Amino acid sequence: MSKRYTARKRDAAALALSLEKTVTDVARDLGVSPEGLRGWVKQAKTDRGEGPAGTLTTAEREELVRLRRKVREQEATIEVLEKATAFLAQDKTK
């Protein structure tokens, strides 16, 4: 699970969506910032398929982060292999 969108935040968003109170009132009751709770509610709606088109769900965001990390690791490996190849090719010509 994402560090940024935890189960606590998901539960708070579900509570805000289920009550007949404003987000500000629910945030005050929970002791969180209204702006933060609004973001959590927005993410909860997106995760349920109710968000704006093109908005990533929590699972999609986590996968994107994982894939970007993997690409960086592979790029670093390729760079090392290229340097090693150049070094070995240079060594053979001597």
Rank of each mutant, 00 (worst) to 15 (best):
M1W: 08
M1D: 08
S2I: 00
K3S: 10
K3G: 13
R4S: 14
R4C: 00
Y5P: 07
T6Y: 05
T6N: 03
R8M: 04
K9C: 07
K9L: 11
K9D: 06
K9Y: 14
R10N: 01
R10Q: 10
D11S: 11
D11C: 02
D11R: 13
D11T: 05
A13W: 03
L15V: 06
A16R: 04
L17V: 02
L19S: 15
L19D: 09
E20S: 15
E20K: 13
E20L: 04
E20T: 13
E20Y: 03
K21Q: 15
K21S: 14
D25A: 15
D25V: 11
D25T: 13
V26Y: 05
V26L: 06
R28C: 07
L30G: 02
G31V: 04
V32S: 02
P34E: 09
P34T: 01
E35C: 06
G36C: 05
L37Q: 08
R38V: 00
R38I: 00
W40Y: 12
W40V: 03
W40A: 02
V41L: 06
V41N: 04
V41K: 08
K42N: 14
K42F: 11
Q43T: 07
Q43P: 08
A44I: 00
A44D: 11
T46H: 07
T46V: 15
T46D: 05
T46L: 06
D47G: 04
D47H: 03
R48Q: 15
G49A: 06
G49K: 07
G49N: 09
E50C: 01
P52V: 02
A53E: 13
G54Q: 07
T55E: 15
L56M: 15
T57M: 08
T57W: 09
T58R: 12
A59L: 12
E60I: 00
R61A: 03
R61I: 13
E62L: 13
L64A: 14
V65A: 12
R66I: 03
R66Q: 11
L67I: 04
R69W: 03
K70F: 06
V71C: 01
V71S: 04
R72A: 11
E73D: 11
E75C: 04
E75V: 10
T77K: 08
T77N: 05
I78E: 01
E79R: 15
V80N: 02
V80F: 07
L81V: 03
E82A: 04
A84Q: 15
T85L: 14
A86G: 00
A86D: 13
F87R: 13
L88P: 05
A89G: 13
A89C: 05
D91S: 09
D91V: 11
D91F: 13
K92A: 14
K92I: 10
T93A: 14
T93P: 01
K94G: 14
